[in-house]
Simulated scan of single mutants.
Amino acid sequence: MVRRLRDEHPAADVRLFEEESAEPRIGELDLLFFDGRVGGEVEQTRILIDPYAVVARRGVFPPGPVPLAALDGVAMVAQPPICDQARVERVYAGAGVAPRIVFRTADNRGVLSMVRAGLGIAVLPRLALDIRPDDDVLTAHPLDPVLTPREIWLAWPANRTLSPLAERARELALGLAVDGEA
């Protein structure tokens, strides 16, 4: 979306802000992407459903789905327990599964790097996976039972008219999500 926006409007002043928050506020932002519904006076729409996968070094699990119970006691690299990660960890607890979290980072590549280094496994949304099919170290497996997928929502202020650039960014985000490219 950003690439297309920059291609169409190379002189535009596009500013991005990333914050890890359990309850984001739109404030002065034009658009907000979040993995869940946003509170406050916003309009919003779900733009993406993002299923989870177990990521491990090749050979840790046999091909195919990994039973949720197999995560009990296993060393795990995880994201901080905010946003959708908190919900995922509640699912583990509700199923009586207690992975041993050995490292946390909000950086998806950091999570994958630690799994690649053998520190543990991870459960990540597919959008966070950067694993090529010919990767000789990492594999991705479905989880059984399947976790409810993460949902990515796009929100914008309910009481403000979007600038033409912000409106175009919103259109691009919605179109790319429908096309599966977001």
Rank of each mutant, 00 (worst) to 15 (best):
V2D: 10
R3W: 14
R4V: 06
R4S: 09
D7N: 12
E8R: 14
P10F: 13
P10W: 11
A11Y: 03
A12P: 03
R15K: 15
L16Q: 13
E20M: 04
E20V: 10
S21T: 15
R25Q: 10
R25K: 07
I26A: 00
E28N: 11
L32Q: 03
F33N: 05
D35I: 00
R37Q: 15
R37E: 15
G39I: 09
E41L: 12
E43F: 07
T45Y: 05
T45Q: 14
R46D: 02
I49A: 13
V54Q: 02
V55Y: 04
R58P: 05
R58I: 07
R58C: 03
G59Y: 03
G64Q: 08
G64M: 08
P65A: 14
P65K: 08
P67L: 15
L68E: 08
L71H: 01
D72W: 03
G73R: 12
Q79P: 04
P81V: 05
D84T: 08
Q85C: 06
Q85P: 04
Q85T: 13
A86I: 01
V88L: 15
E89V: 04
R90L: 07
V91Y: 02
Y92V: 06
A93N: 06
G94K: 15
G94F: 08
A98V: 11
A98R: 15
P99L: 10
R100Q: 13
R100M: 08
R100A: 11
V102H: 13
V102I: 11
F103P: 05
A106I: 01
R109W: 01
A117R: 15
A117S: 13
G118C: 12
I121E: 02
P125C: 07
P125Y: 01
L127S: 14
L127Y: 12
A128R: 06
P133M: 05
P133Y: 02
P133W: 05
D134R: 09
V137I: 14
V137R: 06
V137Q: 03
V137G: 04
T139R: 14
H141W: 10
D144I: 03
P145E: 06
L147N: 07
L147F: 12
I152R: 00
I152E: 00
I152P: 00
A155T: 09
P157F: 09
R160F: 04
P164E: 09
R168D: 04
A169C: 06
R170A: 07
A173G: 03
L174R: 09
L176C: 05
A177N: 08
V178S: 02
D179Q: 13
G180V: 10
